[in-house]
Amino acid sequence: MGSFRKILINEYTHNKINLRNISVTTRQCREVDDRKEMYRSLPTMDEGTAGEKAADIDALINQKGDVFPDADTPNRLFKGVAFKELPVFNIRVTPNNTILCLTDAKGSPQLIRSCGSPQLIRSCGIEGFKNTKKGTNIAAQATAISVGIRALEKGVKTVRVRVRGLGPGRMSAIKGLQMSGLDIVSITDSTRVSWNPPRPRKARKL
């Protein structure tokens, strides 16, 4: 809390006294003596969930019903291919890494026998980002662009995207795929959520 002071300045101008009030607030110098306090003061991590709490999207959702798939969607044609036959880009997002894998409609990885890699699976770690740099949205975007270009070279143009997990790369990986020139038909979330999960690991001590 900054202290609040008032300075009165007297101005003498030709036998007239003008009183002016000037309020001055001291700069908020935050003394971080507690580690928890410090973590709280840090900016929250980007989890790729933009718009999660935006209430203005609700009206948008109600307006256009055609963004949601229905019973006919699997057989709907996108660039001459049925929706259910389209190849799938699986994106696994964690706070520390982003992994992209291209599979066909059945879920088996598409085989690429070039460059010594058996399949089109790339992570930020493979792409050259090391340690904490792996878990950034820039790394995810760069990886997505390079993997998207490789997919285009293979002849895959129209894809579905399936995202799993929360992390900085969640949105930027999808954006990177689009920037590489791929045509994204749909975005699916397959984050594994259970309402009666087995006991998770113990909480981190901060």
């Binding site: 969930t49 933009a50 718009g51 935006a54 959702i61 055609d66």
Partner: peptide, 18 residues
């Protein structure tokens, strides 16, 4: 699942997240 309209991926993401 959200179908992407007019190649606007970000809007689709936002709807999904919302």
């Amino acid at each position: 699942t959200i179908l992407v309209q007019n190649n606007d991926v970000e809007a689709a993401c936002r709807i999904l997240n919302r």
